[in-house]
Amino acid sequence: MSSPPLPPLDVTPRVDLEWGLQGARRFAERVDVVVVVDVLSFSTSVTVACERGARVWPHPGGEEAHALARSIEAVLAGTRSHTSGPSLSPTSLLDLPEGSRLVLPSPNGSSITHALMNAKVAVVAGGLRNAAAVARYVRDVGAERVAVVPAGERWPDHSLRFAYEDLVGAGAVVRRLTETVPGLFRSPEAEAAALAFAELQPLDGTPSGRELVERGFADDVRLAEQVDASDVVPVLREGRFAAAALPSTL
Rank of each mutant, 00 (worst) to 15 (best):
E165S: 13
V36M: 09
G126I: 04
A65I: 09
T83M: 12
A170Q: 05
V123N: 04
I112Q: 08
D32R: 11
N118A: 15
V33H: 02
A69S: 13
R30K: 15
P58L: 05
T79Q: 11
V46I: 02
R136M: 08
V39S: 08
P156R: 07
R55L: 03
G62H: 13
F42E: 01
V75E: 13
A147R: 01
R154N: 10
D38P: 04
M117P: 00
L93Q: 10
W155F: 14
G99P: 07
A132Q: 10
S43R: 11
L104H: 03
A132F: 00
T91V: 15
V123G: 08
V146F: 06
F162W: 14
E153I: 08
V168G: 12
R70D: 15
A133P: 11
E63S: 14
P105A: 00
R136F: 02
N118C: 00
G85D: 09
P86R: 04
G127T: 12
V33W: 04
L160N: 10
L94I: 11
G61Y: 06
A147F: 01
V141K: 08
R136D: 12
L94H: 06
N108C: 04
G85E: 03
L94C: 12
N108R: 07
A151H: 06
H82P: 00
G127Q: 10
G62C: 07
S43D: 03
P60H: 08
A133G: 09
A119L: 04
R136S: 14
G142V: 12
S92H: 05
P60I: 03
R52A: 05
G61Q: 03
S100C: 05
H114Y: 15
G171Y: 00
V146H: 03
G78P: 00
D32E: 07
S100G: 06
L102R: 05
L128M: 11
G85F: 08
A131V: 09
P107M: 01
R30L: 14
R139L: 14
R30I: 02
V121Q: 06
G109Y: 04
G85A: 05
R129E: 07
L128K: 12
H158P: 00
R129P: 05
R70E: 13
T47P: 05
R136Y: 12
P97V: 08
